[in-house]
Design a protein around this nucleic acid. Sequence first.
DNA 1: ACGAGGTCCTGCGAGC
DNA 2: TGCTCGCAGGACCTCG
Length: 274
Amino acid sequence: MPELPEVETIVRDLRPELTGRQIIKATLSHDDVLRDVTRQRLVRSLAGARIEDVKRRAKHAVFELDRGRLVIQPGMSGSFLIHDQDLTAEESKYAVLRATLDDGRILVYRDVRRLGTILLLNDGAWADYDAALGPEPLDASLRPAKFAARLGRSRAAIKKVLMDQRMVVGVGNIYANEALFAARIDPSRPATKVKPEEYRELLKHVRRILKAAITSKGTTLRDYRTGTGERGAFQFELLVYDRAGEPCRVCGTRISTTHEIDARSTFFCHRCQR
DNA sequence: ACGAGGTCCTGCGAGC
DNA sequence: TGCTCGCAGGACCTCG
C-alpha cells in the first residue's frame, strides 16, 4: 500500500505529535516483521528512548531516536495511529507494535498482512541502508539526465525498473501505472529503449503525480489511512489504475490490464502509450 | 549478470 | 449459504 505520498502524509501527521516525546514502554505482537533485530533488543531499546524527529526516506517512516533509528517500512497494509487511550479488542487485533508515550498516548503500528518490516539501526547501519536506496524523485538534485542514465541501463520493462527502489525510490504500483500513462510510455517497453526526452517527461510526471497525491493525502483503496486515521483522496484522481475495461480519459479506448510485468497488475491505454 | 518466479501474511470478493 | 481460488498498494530470496 503505502508508496511515497502515503508515507509522506503519515510522517507529516506524526511528526508534530511525536517530536520531543519519550517512549516509556514498547510491546511487539509478532516477530515476523522484524529484520536484523530481536524482539528483546527492540523492546529494550525503545523503552526510555526520546523521539527527536520523524522523517521519510523512500517508503520508510524513520523515527530518529536519541539512540539510533526505528525504521518502519509499512509494506502493503501497514498504518500508524496515535491512540489517546488503551486499545479496544478490535483495535488490538492487528496492532503489531505499540509504544506508550510519556504523555500517556500510544503510538501504534498496525499491519494486517505483516508484509511490512521493522528495523532498528545505529548511525553506521542506517548509512549503509540509506546508501543502497536510489535517489528521492522529489529531490531537485535528481536531474533528468541522471534519472535516464540510472534507469536506462536495464533491459527490463520500464515499469519494473521505475518501481525498483535501487533505481529511484518511492514509486510503487499505483504511481508507476499513473506516471507511465501520463508520459505516454508503454509500461512493457525495455528501459533501454526509452529515449532521453521520454525520461525527462516521465520524471516530470512522476514528480507532478507524487506531489498531487501528497496534496490529496494519498490513495486509499482499502487499508491505507493517514497518520490521523483518515482516508486519502487521490483514488478519485487515478486515470488508469484499477480502471480495466473503462474508457481512457484521453482517447476513450478501453483501458487494458496485464500481469505480465513482474507479476504486478498493470493498467494502460494501448493507444495512448507506445 | 540478469530475469523469472516463489515466498512471506491475511482478508476479501468473485464464482461455483 | 459456504467453499475455494485468485488477487491485493511491497520487497526479498533462490534458481537457472
